[in-house]
């Protein structure tokens, strides 16, 4: 006599695989194979479009291959990597990128959180305000770059026109070393602050109301409530938004291409812009591949460190 069949299990997948196939289904088509069949199109696409190009770039990074010069690729092993890591040109671009990432992401985080905090305190029109703030994020970077280029034009731009009407002098926003990088940061901040705002707003609305009520009963000040309730609860979510933005900012290309072309001189050339020049001006495909792989590695390592910090924060 067989025992009763359990209704629940800790391993539903195993129960499913132990169940005999439905009548009419081929014996060969087990659930496992069906699962494989269903995910294989997506898997193949991923392999063809992401994994293979990455492996191919990794292979090319150890060679002197050029896409236009043709010929067979000769192994130069780590020479591309050594040249990149010891190049003063690359160090300069890395510094520019670092200043840009830190400047843009910090500004966006402060502004994004501040806007989200103010919106979260409103009871009326919150949806409309949020939607309006999100508009810049929905625009193409090229379009944003083009209209900011007109707005920042020293001669005909609306920004200088406004400064002029206030009695201030003309500023060469895009053609001076001191202002060109700041202009890029400002434009990026204009476009991407809403992203941080959106994530922060999600975090702020999820903070349980009873915590604030308890704090009010204890006559806690506004600042005390913000510091001990709001910020600690929103902080992990905000850090994830910062991570996304930092990765995005690290690979900035479009705005530089449209607004400054890396100028004046090379003072706003980011790492991505430099990779583009190495890859497409001289068609040094091997070097460009190594450059790209190094950038991916940097992002992976920094992300891992960041995620560990984030996990530690959650555990605490």
């Amino acid at each position: 006599m067989s025992g009763p069949v359990p209704l629940t299990t800790d391993h539903p997948g195993q129960v499913a695989s132990a169940t005999p196939p439905a009548p009419g289904r081929s014996r060969r088509l087990s659930d496992r194979w069906l699962a494989v069949a269903f995910i294989s199109p997506a898997l193949l696409l991923l392999l063809a479009m992401s994994v293979f190009p990455l492996l191919w770039a990794l292979y090319l990074s150890f060679t002197d291959y050029s896409a236009t010069r043709g010929g067979s690729a000769h192994f130069v092993w780590f020479e591309n990597y050594t040249a990149i890591l010891t190049s003063a040109q690359v160090h300069l671009r890395a510094l520019t990128t670092l200043i840009y990432v830190v400047g843009a992401v910090a500004l966006q985080t402060v502004l994004g959180f501040a806007i989200a905090y103010l919106i979260s305190r409103r009871t009326h029109g919150r949806g409309l305000l949020t939607t309006l703030f999100l508009v810049p994020m929905m625009l193409s970077q090229v379009v944003v770059g083009l209209f900011w280029k007109f707005m920042l034009d020293a001669q005909f731009g609306v920004i200088n026109s406004m400064l002029g009407s206030l009695g201030l002098g003309q500023v060469e926003w895009l053609t001076r070393q001191q202002t060109a990088l700041i202009s890029l940061i400002v434009v990026d901040t204009w476009q991407w602050t809403p992203f941080i705002m959106l994530i922060a707003l999600a975090g702020l609305t999820a903070v349980p109301k009873y915590l604030y009520e308890a704090a009010s009963i204890d006559r806690a000040s506004e600042w005390f409530r913000f510091r001990t309730i709001t910020l600690p609860l929103v902080w992990p979510l905000l850090l994830i938004a910062v991570l996304f933005r930092a990765i995005e900012a690290f690979r900035l290309f479009d705005l530089v291409y449209i607004l400054t072309s890396g100028g004046p001189g090379v003072s706003t050339e980011t790492l991505s812009f430099h990779v583009y020049k190495v890859a497409f001006l001289g068609f040094n495909t091997g070097t460009a591949s190594a450059y790209g792989i190094l950038m991916v590695l940097i992002v992976i390592v920094l992300t891992q460190l960041y995620l560990r910090y984030l996990n530690k924060l959650k555990e605490d």
Partner: peptide, 10 residues
């Protein structure tokens, strides 16, 4: 840089 092995284009 014709005979250079690695790092061409930097």
């Amino acid at each position: 840089s014709g005979n250079r092995k690695g790092g061409g284009g930097l």
